[in-house]
Amino acid sequence: MPPSDNWTEKPVSALEVLENATVEQTIIELLDSLQETEGVLRPGSNIQPKLAAICIALDDISFTKTDLVWIHGDIAMDHGTWHRQTESAHELACIYAAMITIEQKKENIARTISAIQKAAYFSGLAAGYSHHRKTVAVEKARKAGLTKAAISAEINNQLIKLLKSKRPRNGWPGAGNAAKFLAPLLLEFITEELKAKKADLGSVQSVIHNSIENDKNVRQAYIKTANARQATLTKNASKTPSLK
Results as ranks from 00 to 15, higher is better:
Pro3Lys: 15
Val12Trp: 03
Ser13Trp: 02
Leu15Thr: 09
Leu15His: 05
Glu16Asp: 02
Glu19Phe: 10
Val23Arg: 08
Glu24Val: 14
Leu30Lys: 11
Leu30Arg: 14
Ser33Val: 00
Leu34His: 04
Leu34Met: 02
Leu41Glu: 05
Ser45Gly: 00
Gln48Glu: 04
Pro49Trp: 02
Ala52Gln: 01
Ala53Ser: 08
Asp60Ile: 09
Thr66Tyr: 07
Trp82Pro: 08
His83Arg: 04
His90Met: 13
Ala93Arg: 02
Met99Ser: 11
Glu103His: 09
Gln104Asp: 06
Lys106Ser: 12
Ile109Trp: 14
Tyr121Phe: 06
Leu125Cys: 08
Ala127Gly: 15
Arg133Phe: 08
Lys134Leu: 06
Val138Trp: 00
Lys143Pro: 02
Gly145Asn: 10
Leu146Tyr: 03
Leu146Pro: 02
Thr147Phe: 02
Ser152Cys: 08
Glu154Met: 05
Lys164Glu: 14
Arg167Met: 13
Arg169Glu: 05
Asn170Gln: 15
Gly171Asp: 06
Gly171Met: 08
Trp172Tyr: 05
Pro173Val: 12
Gly176Gln: 04
Asn177Cys: 06
Lys180Cys: 01
Lys180Leu: 04
Leu185Asp: 14
Glu188Leu: 14
Phe189Trp: 13
Glu192His: 15
Leu194His: 11
Leu201Ile: 15
Val207Leu: 14
Val207Gln: 07
Glu213His: 07
Asp215Cys: 07
Ile223Cys: 01
Ala228Val: 13
Thr234Pro: 08
Ala237His: 08
Ser238Tyr: 06
Thr240His: 11
